[in-house]
């Protein structure tokens, strides 16, 4: 029963968020702020993690392709497809759910318990729309860029390992990266990420917006935001994979 309560309230919040903005200039300014805060500030963590995962994937691929019958360029193919199909969208989204989701929930939660949201409502501002819509727009725009970045950095990490160790020659590795490339793998990754951005942002915003009580509660609601958005994200990963990838 609690589930239906939350689903209903989530739906109401989202419909409030997508009301027509009254002052587009203010929304524009707010969106620029969020782009920096939620997007640009996440570049660092995506780069670091993608670099290491690309490197590790290369080593593991080498480990799996021990048979001399198999061509070495398969390492490059494997790294590329692992990044494209799962890591640079789903795994990066999970990481972003932790970083961006918790920051959204705690920001809105703090605004709620310190009556900043009430202050907006009193003025006659649609607080849900003013606070949440710019976040949705900026993450749905920026997260796919982070996927692209993660792909590039991940493959570079793999290449570095190929150069430094002798798992494969750099030429073979690059050949593998280019071998039989399906462009729709790429669009699949981007589409998934756009959906994930929406899930992370709205679920985290929901938990923050309806926080109540003390600052302790804000912490709890930010934890719930991360857990719920991660679970929903993984569910949608399954559904989308079934739908898009055939």
């Amino acid at each position: 029963m609690r589930l239906f309560y939350h689903l209903g309230r989530y739906y109401l919040l989202i419909s409030k968020v997508f009301a027509w903005p009254e002052r587009s200039s203010m929304y524009y300014r707010q969106t620029m702020r969020e782009l920096e805060y939620l997007g640009i500030n996440s570049i660092g963590i995506v780069v670091i993690i993608s670099l290491f995962v690309g490197a590790v994937l290369t080593i593991q691929m080498d480990y799996n392709i021990e048979s001399p019958m198999l061509p070495r360029y398969l390492i490059g193919v494997g790294v590329r497809d692992s990044l494209l199909l799962e890591f640079s969208s789903t795994m990066v989204a999970l990481i972003l759910a932790g970083k961006v989701g918790s920051s959204i929930a705690s920001e809105l939660g703090t605004m709620r318990i310190t009556e900043q949201i009430d202050a907006l409502e009193i003025m006659g501002v649609n607080s849900a729309s003013f606070l949440i819509l710019p976040k949705i727009i900026s993450t749905m725009f920026f997260f796919p860029l982070l996927t692209v970045l993660s792909l590039i950095v991940g493959m570079s990490g793999g290449y570095l390992v190929a150069v430094i160790t002798d798992v494969s020659t750099p030429q073979e590795f690059v050949y593998g990266l280019q071998y039989v490339f399906y462009p729709y793998y790429f669009t699949y990754a981007l589409k998934k990420m756009i959906v994930f951005a929406f899930i992370i942002t709205t679920i985290s915003a929901y938990h923050g917006y309806y926080a109540e009580g003390s600052s302790l509660e804000v912490g709890k609601s930010s934890t719930r935001a991360v857990v719920h958005s991660s679970v929903v994200l993984l569910m949608f990963n399954l559904i989308l994979t079934k739908l898009i990838l055939r």
Binding site: R23, T114, Q116, D118, A119
Partner: peptide, 23 residues
């Protein structure tokens, strides 16, 4: 409001100007 409820991410000036910007 009891704790003033100023918008944390805005400066003093932006806080006071906010209703003017909005309306």
């Amino acid at each position: 409001f009891q704790g003033a409820a100023l918008f944390d991410s805005f400066t003093v000036e932006e806080n006071v100007r906010y209703p003017l910007d909005m309306f």
